[in-house]
Design a protein around this nucleic acid. Structure first.
Lengths: 347, 347
DNA sequence: GTGAAAGCGCTAACAG
DNA sequence: CTGTTAGCGCTTTCAC
């Protein structure tokens, strides 16, 4: 009933009448042990409900703990959840457990979390950097052999492995798709702050696609917002321009929600739309959404594999891995530009 | 360059010329220390890049580790991610870190994960039970004082705290809403296996709403599927019935996707729809989706609070906490039944 | 095949 | 204010 002391190796040993080391041997299948001893030890373990103390073990063995430290900006975001799933799948066979925390996109919290992970001697550290965070403080740990991998965005002040989506080429492809359909004025609704790595890259992809087609870059067509409602408002603004776009590219899925909401409410089925990042409902919408899909599970997997390779002694220099995106053409990019003021039929 | 041994307390002590205990005192702000010593210790810590070893500390202090073990069936599901976020927010102030793993809805993996957590001496254990899992094996740990909380679904074979959504009354409310709008034949598309706790409860809510309105329970109107495509197929089957439903209730959001897809493709805007669990795009759909929304963050928070209370000595008997759902009426439940074959106008 | 002793990195308990 | 000793639960090392 009361919170009794949990049984230890010594308790088991006493119960059986052998030494602690013998019990240890049986449990870890390290060194030989007679079948009878084995039998009796296992029985005692079951009887006492003994649970080995992994912390005590690790401290003695001296190596890193069998955990993977992962810092994400938001646990509720399925993108990061899926990344985490990819990591877990890749490290499970090595017996590693995921230690996961949220930085809430705050550099201070991120740093605190990282310190906690270091204090726990994680075997590898994976971080989705918060905007504004600096990672110089990780130099010593990395030099001491700790594999560090940045996910989704590169780290700052530390040369370490990094796994990101091919943001630039992905957007390039999506925008080129719109251009190929005849659009010459394409709006871009990005995330704020616009300096966020992913948004910078995506905007660069937008610009390179325009450049490739010899289209002018018109900054009045480029906006950004903090949330869904903001994106909706920016969409309205874009459509009210004297010379409005005939197509819109949404820089991430939160922006997409706002843009879609506004387009739908306004009944503007004539505006073509492509979005970065897939949405569960993308193919259920009317029209179905054309997206540049990321592969979060592959990002997690690549990160884990890189880190495991480091753990296994890979000492080559830090690399950046681009996980390709995939253009999924559905209906929303269908509308061709129609300069005439002809409203599409209702059905 | 090489993976040198990390500095220990003793190394710092030697550097400064004091005892290890003094360094410990400074770092933990335990007991007094002269400002000069403090200063010099801190300097040495910084110089050597010392990181305290939390495992060694915990083993000595003897108490549980400052971690929370959380087992979920799927890391990529935003529902569980948001639950995890709720837990983290609630335990952060106590300095607890989240240890999180996925059971992939497999009882064996769930058990393995739980063993790992126990071996790590987590301070509390939170589990979303997999279908078919048994938790009798946790009795000893719970008796030894480990707070155990089941989330989303009750555990099996162990009396422990449990936090669930008010599935039954939530669905009751949603179905009653449809009935109030005049519907008398309402389809139910649930998740499989139908014996899953949440689906049992939700179906019970469906039946109680019918009973309350003196409507017959017609089992041909009740179906289930494993995935989105299955739900779409079941929707088609429902609508092809000789006496088809005029409204549909979807038992979770994956089912919802299938039902919506089919209804949209078939152009059946005359069928009313209510869904369990909110979707990010719910209010962007045309029509916007009426949902019975769960509150995953509140579930996580309630679980964490309960467990913390146990940690603080609460020895009252295990309780089940229902986190209320909320009916969010949007457009999709709008259509009233129209026995006549009159198709609604396009716009 | 098994055991005794030492020690991992840290802190409790007692000195001084 | 600071140091010493012992020991957390386990494994390593070496002996039997």
């Amino acid at each position: 009933m009361a919170a009794n002391r949990r049984p230890t190796l010594a308790d088991v040993a006493r119960e059986v009448g052998v030494s602690a080391k013998t019990v240890s041997r049986v449990l870890n299948e390290d060194g030989p042990s007679s079948p009878q001893t084995r039998e009796r030890v296992l029985a005692a373990v079951a009887k006492l409900g003994f649970q080995p103390n992994l912390m005590a073990r690790n401290i003695r063995v001296g190596g890193p703990d069998t955990t993977v430290g992962l810092v994400v900006p938001d646990l509720g975001n399925p993108f990061f959840g899926t990344v985490a799933g990819g990591i877990e799948d890749a490290v499970r066979s090595r017996g590693l457990t995921l230690l996961m925390g949220s930085s809430a996109e705050d550099p201070d919290q991120e740093r605190t979390l990282i310190q906690t992970f270091l204090a726990r001697r994680v075997s590898m550290l994976m971080v989705v950097p918060s905007f504004g965070a600096d990672h110089t403080h990780l130099k010593a740990s990395r030099a001491a052999g700790l594999p560090v991998v940045f996910l989704d965005r590169p780290g700052v002040g530390l040369s370490a492995d990094c796994v990101v989506s091919s943001n630039r080429t992905g957007v390039h492809e999506g925008v080129s798709h719109l251009i190929a359909r005849g659009h010459r004025r394409i709006g871009f609704v990005g995330d704020l702050p616009a300096k966020l790595y992913t948004q910078r890259e995506r905007l660069a992809g937008y610009r390179s696609a325009l450049a490739e087609a010899d289209l002018p870059y018109d900054r009045t067509l480029v906006t950004g917002a903090h949330d869904q409602d903001g994106a909706a408002a920016e969409t309205t603004a874009l459509l009210s321009l004297p010379n409005p776009p005939t197509a819109v590219f949404a820089g991430n899925n939160m922006m997409a929600l706002g843009v879609i909401a506004r387009l739908t409410r306004a009944g503007r089925k004539d505006i073509a739309l492509v979005t970065f990042d897939d949405l569960p409902l993308a193919d259920v919408l009317e029209p179905a959404l054309t997206v540049v899909a990321q592969d979060p599970a592959a990002i997690g997997e690549a990160a884990a594999r890189t880190a495991l390779a480091r753990l296994d002694g890979d000492r080559t220099r830090a690399r950046t891995i681009m996980v390709p995106t995939r253009l999924v053409v559905r209906g929303s990019s269908e509308p061709a530009p129609c300069p005439a003021e002809r409203a599409p039929a209702g059905s």
